[in-house]
Amino acid sequence: MSFVEYSELIQEGDVAIIFLGHDSMFPLMVQSGAQTQTRYGVIRHSTDLIGRRYGSKVTCSKGGWVYVLHPTPELWTLNLPHRTQILYATDIANITMMLELKPGSVVCESGTGSGSLSHAMLRTIAPTGHLYTVEFHQQRAEKATEEFREHKVDHLVTVLNQDVCKDGFGVTGVADAVFLDIPSPWEAVGHAKSAMKRQGGRLCSFSPCIEQVQRTCAALAEHGFGEICTLEVLLRLYDVRAVSLPLPDFGPDDPSRTDPGVPDRAGPSVPTNTAVTCRTAIAPREMAGHTGYLTFASKSLV
């Protein structure tokens, strides 16, 4: 197992996702001899996990069962320990495409935060790309380094514990793309520019507030970035349900028009169908209405 490469069987040292049902999941580290408690009973790693196929159904001690899933960056995003606010798949998807990430891309990112986006970017730039991720919080930087090692992606990433606004990304002229998710991105635009390749590249800044966006856009224009574009993406999840719509009763048909010869035929109407069932997709009562504004820009040729 690795976050950048699928494998068929569960092995010692893997991070697996245990799926309990309906949005209930948790990650675990597979270790022979270890046991994990779930609401359906115990999972014994040596017998229940190691050597079995990913996607298998595992019966726990109380008789209930779970599915064991191969980790993906998207499942990790839903299961990772939160140390900060994190980016979710909807924004990540747009960031990845708009930054034009692909295998071989060199990316600079700050801050690392909980590593949600980092994992997704590593997946996309593997096996030949590299991620330089800068985090000013020491414990967070250390925890991220540890996770990258556990997830077998440490060869693709360099974690730096420094303030990107003061000290930059630690590299010059190598990045194809830069991503900023920091409180004052405008202070890092200069560093972002110098980290990027001379032939140009793409930049993205994620900010929850429009005031941050305004200052960032001004800084981008000042540093000669082009194609500056700010957008917002929201996810609308639908719940598929069968709903029943009752049919109204308008009373019996006009009695004067009924055939007098057959009085009972149109008599007190007993509609055969009192309701119509239809399958529909229902929008949730509440949804995330704002995550952050995504500002993209291109570094043009110098």
Partner: peptide, 18 residues
Amino acid sequence: VINLRLSETWLRHYQVLP
């Protein structure tokens, strides 16, 4: 299959000028 999700994304662009 598990984790079935039916979704749609909503996209809005902004004009950012002083």
